[in-house]
């Protein structure tokens, strides 16, 4: 057992009848990491998170939390888990204090530490002021905070948050992000979202799921490298023959956009920008534009999620 991996998911499958919602997903997560789960709606993000949190049994596969198999020893594994589902599981008729005290009891926090645990969770989630208010009367942003407080009350090693910022206003979203950022200092967090900038601001590592399959598992730095892309946009007053450009070292392909404008694709290692400038000066091509193309996360995401041809089963 590798000590550094806190969550280990091995060949996870989940079928709903004939529909395969999660198809052979495996990944590992280390201590202190913030893992972003990305994917279009209905890709299987929530299903995967439900399985990791022990709310749903996988059709096949293994999930180890802190080295404990959640299927064989659910109680031991769940001690290390805090889970906030898409819709926070709140009892609207209880006050924040009563609710959190109940959560503390459910998570078997000893009586002596219960009060401290509730206070700590409240202060971390900014709920100290609203402790005596009914949950049903709180705004959606505060309800979401109560949901997060519930997930961290037993100080679990892993926190699973399913779309924690959905339906909030921009200010609330920023507050929740700050909160998640603070939590990431002490906990490992798995976070699902379909808001892409969120991933860039919070996560260390990104997993993209599409149609139940894992299509990308990379660090944020790796993803950024992908975003840097591998093409140059160039424009000349006196354009050379396209074949000449294509024959230059490092150039893999070119695309003629309009008169004198080309998109030049190059390999990851070799950047032909300098060579093109030199040749242009030497041979008087009249280079007046040279832009490295940078992909947005959106484009990378769309590229990745649409790269696979849509299979027949997904048509339903």
């Amino acid at each position: 057992m590798n000590d550094s991996s806190l969550v280990r998911v091995e060949q996870l499958y989940r079928y709903y009848g004939p529909l395969c919602a999660v198809n052979n997903i495996s990944f590992e997560m280390g201590r202190g990491e913030v893992l972003g789960f990305l994917g279009p709606n209905g890709a299987g993000k929530s299903t995967t998170m439900q399985m990791i949190s022990g709310n749903l049994a996988p059709s096949a596969g293994r999930i180890l939390i802190h080295g404990v198999d959640i299927l064989d020893h659910p109680r031991e594994a769940k001690v290390h888990l805090g889970y906030l589902p898409e819709q926070p599981p709140l009892y609207r008729e209880l006050t924040v204090d009563e609710y959190l005290a109940y959560c503390a009891r459910l998570n078997r926090i000893p009586r002596a530490q219960r009060h401290g645990a509730v206070d700590a969770a409240k202060s971390r989630c900014g709920l100290t002021e609203v402790g005596r208010r009914l949950i049903g009367n709180l705004s959606k942003g505060f309800q979401q905070r109560v949901g997060i407080a519930q997930a961290i009350i037993h100080n679990p090693a892993v926190i699973i948050l399913d779309e924690p910022t959905v339906g909030l206003d921009p200010i609330q979203i920023r507050e929740i992000r700050t909160l998640i950022h603070e939590l990431s200092r002490e906990h490992s967090i798995i976070l699902s979202t379909h808001i892409l900038p969120e991933v860039q601001t919070i996560c260390d590592r990104v997993i993209i799921i599409n149609q139940g399959k894992l299509v990308l598992n990379d660090t944020l730095a790796g993803l950024q490298r992908r975003m840097e892309g591998s093409s140059l946009l160039v424009a000349f007053r006196h354009p050379p023959a396209p074949a000449l450009l294509e024959s230059m070292p490092g150039v893999e392909d070119i695309e003629i956009l309009e008169a004198g404008r080309f998109r030049i694709y190059h390999g990851d290692s070799a950047d032909p920008a300098e060579a093109i400038v030199d040749r242009s000066v030497a041979e008087g091509w009249g280079l007046y534009e040279l832009t490295p193309q940078r992909l947005s996360l959106e484009q990378v995401f769309i590229q990745i999620t649409q790269a696979r041809p849509v299979e027949g089963e997904a048509a339903a």
Binding site: S53, G54, N55, G82, Y83, P85, Q87, L90, L106, R108
Partner: peptide
């Protein structure tokens, strides 16, 4: 209906 079952399902309970 209120999706609160997951609170108990995620807690270490049988």
């Amino acid at each position: 209906r209120n999706r609160t079952l997951s609170l108990m399902f995620s807690a270490p309970l049988a």
